[in-house]
Structure formats: structure tokens, C-alpha cells
């Protein structure tokens, strides 16, 4: 079947065999990796110069080199890692709860139109409430310990997962549903082989947004009341007027968030290999 093979190669030649790394292509690749670093580096150099000239007060905004030194110290003493791990562990527990409930609720609502109608009013009222508004309420109900913080995170990650699961299920291609009908597939096959895989890209989007919000919520909750965690580190440093420690805390939140997002994207690309849009 020579003509078929040709047909096949014709459509995938661009994607399948990795092109040899010519000098021109290698340069372009290196450039695309370096490009995102240019603006931050320029800003850092500028900032450092201004600090050295004494144009920025170090008690308000320490020089990048000073912040770097503090970061090294905090990492070496294990303090930063300890606080990050405490926060991450809270996020893990909260997201498991929130995303878990979000997934289940999303399936129920997505598969039953009457369920959506039944909960439409209550979700409409609850969804726009900023997560931070829940913190004092939850502290009143659950005390100042882990429970309230984890609940805040759970609430934060619940909504995006719920909404995206419903969206993913609703958007399953009707034409493919018709194929399942023609082949007389059972409800279970329909759910696990057709609807869920079709919804998976949306579910991933929900997870990514949910984890992002969870990471923001944990810091919020820790700023209000905690004895460990990155939020606590920042709050405590403010009380001691340690601007450098505060900034290390703030930047570490961003870096951790970036790392989490990177990991989810990798997982997504592995699980959604079939999705041509991701290749």
C-alpha cells in the first residue's frame, strides 16, 4: 500500500521526525529560551544600580543582591523550605478536597440538566464571594487551626473545577455522541470512553485554575492567622521590618506557582497526547 504510506507521511512529516539541529535552528531555539529572561534581567540590573546609588531606601526596597543573600540564608537554614512545605501541604489537602468535590459535583450537574437548574441559584450567589471573605467566618466556625485554612483552599479550588467539568461535559461533540448511539454503547461506556475523555482538557483547565487559586488562598489565610507557612513568614517579617525577608517570601510564592503550573502542563501533555492542539 505505497500510496497510503505516502499519504501518511505527507500529513505528519512536519510533526513526526525531529529535524536535525542545524546551527540556524539551534540558534533560533536558544533565542526563544533566552527571550523571556531579557526583561527581568534588565529590570534587576536597573534596580541594583538605583539601590547602589542610594536612590532607593533599603528599608523599603532592598537591593536585589541583598534579597538574594537573604534568600540563600533562608534556604540554608531550612526556614524558607519549611514554610513553603507547610503551605504546600495545606494546598495539597485543600485541593484534594475541593477539586474532588468539584469533580463529583461537576459530573452530577453536567450529566443531569435538572441538577444544574436545582443548584443554579445557590451557586450563583456563592460563586462571586471572594475567598478571603470566608476566612473570618471559617475561623469562627472551625477555630484557628488547619481546618479553617484547608477549607478556604477547598472552596477556592472547588469553583473552577466544577465550572470547567460542567463545561467540558456539555461541550462533548454531539456527532461523537451519535456514534456511541449507533454502536449501542452502555451508559458506563458512554461516560468513561466518550464523555470523560472529551471533558478531560476542560477538567485540566479547571485543575490548573483551581490549584492557582488554592495557592493564592493559602497565603491569604496564612496572612490572617497562622504560625507557619509562607504567608506567616511574610507577616512576621513585616512586624520585624525585615523587607528583604518579606520579598523573599513574596517571590518564592511566585516561583512555586510557576513550578506547579509547569508540572501540571507536563502531566496534561502526557495525558492528552491525542489532542492535536497541544502538540
Amino acid at each position: 500500500m505505497a500510496e497510503i504510506e505516502l499519504e501518511y507521511l505527507g500529513t505528519t512529516a512536519a510533526a513526526a521526525p525531529p529535524k536535525p539541529l542545524g546551527p540556524k535552528r539551534a540558534r533560533r531555539l536558544g533565542f526563544s529560551y533566552l527571550l523571556p529572561l531579557v526583561i527581568p534581567l534588565v529590570l534587576l540590573v536597573l534596580w541594583e544600580l538605583l539601590s547602589r546609588r542610594g536612590l532607593v531606601r533599603p528599608t523599603i526596597l532592598p537591593a536585589p543582591s541583598a534579597i538574594g543573600a537573604t534568600a540563600r540564608e533562608l534556604v540554608a537554614s531550612g526556614e524558607l523550605i519549611h514554610h513553603l512545605l507547610v503551605s504546600l501541604w495545606r494546598v495539597t489537602k485543600g485541593v484534594t478536597l475541593g477539586a474532588g468535590f468539584g469533580l463529583v459535583a461537576g459530573l452530577v450537574v453536567g450529566l443531569n440538566p435538572w441538577a444544574e437548574r436545582a443548584v443554579s441559584l445557590i451557586t450563583g450567589v456563592l460563586r462571586p464571594i471572594p475567598i478571603i471573605a470566608w476566612v473570618p467566618v471559617l475561623i469562627l466556625w472551625m477555630g484557628i487551626d488547619e481546618g479553617s485554612k484547608i477549607t478556604v483552599i477547598a472552596i477556592g479550588s472547588f469553583w473552577p473545577v466544577l465550572l470547567n467539568v460542567v463545561h467540558g461535559i456539555r461541550n462533548t461533540d454531539r456527532k461523537i455522541l451519535e456514534v456511541a448511539k449507533v454502536f449501542q454503547k452502555s451508559r458506563a461506556t458512554l461516560l468513561f470512553k466518550v464523555v470523560l475523555p472529551a471533558a478531560l482538557p476542560s477538567i485540566f483547565t479547571g485543575m490548573r485554575i483551581g490549584i492557582g487559586i488554592a495557592w493564592m488562598s493559602v497565603v491569604g489565610a496564612e496572612l490572617i492567622a497562622a504560625s507557619a507557612g509562607v504567608g506567616y513568614l511574610i507577616m512576621y517579617a513585616r512586624e520585624l521590618s525585615q523587607a528583604d525577608v518579606m520579598l523573599v517570601g513574596v517571590v518564592s510564592i511566585g516561583v512555586t506557582g510557576l513550578a506547579i503550573d509547569f508540572l501540571i502542563r507536563r502531566l496534561e501533555r502526557r495525558l492528552l497526547r491525542w489532542n492535536a492542539n497541544l502538540q
Binding site: 456527532k175 456514534v179 448511539k181 470512553k193 472529551a198
Partner: peptide
């Protein structure tokens, strides 16, 4: 109703994009 004694091929192939060729055929 639809039945397995009648096969159907649509204008668009309507394959399940998350399944390989093998699994798509086995889906029948």
C-alpha cells in the same frame, strides 16, 4: 432505533480523537 445489524459511516469520519486507530476500530 439504532442497531448493530446496521452500520453507519458519516461524512466526517467521527473518530474518537483520544483513541488510537486500534481502539477506534475496537470501539465498533
Amino acid at each position: 432505533n439504532p442497531g448493530l445489524e446496521r452500520g453507519m459511516v458519516f461524512q466526517e469520519a467521527r473518530l474518537l480523537p483520544w483513541m488510537t486507530v486500534w481502539d477506534n476500530i475496537a470501539f465498533g
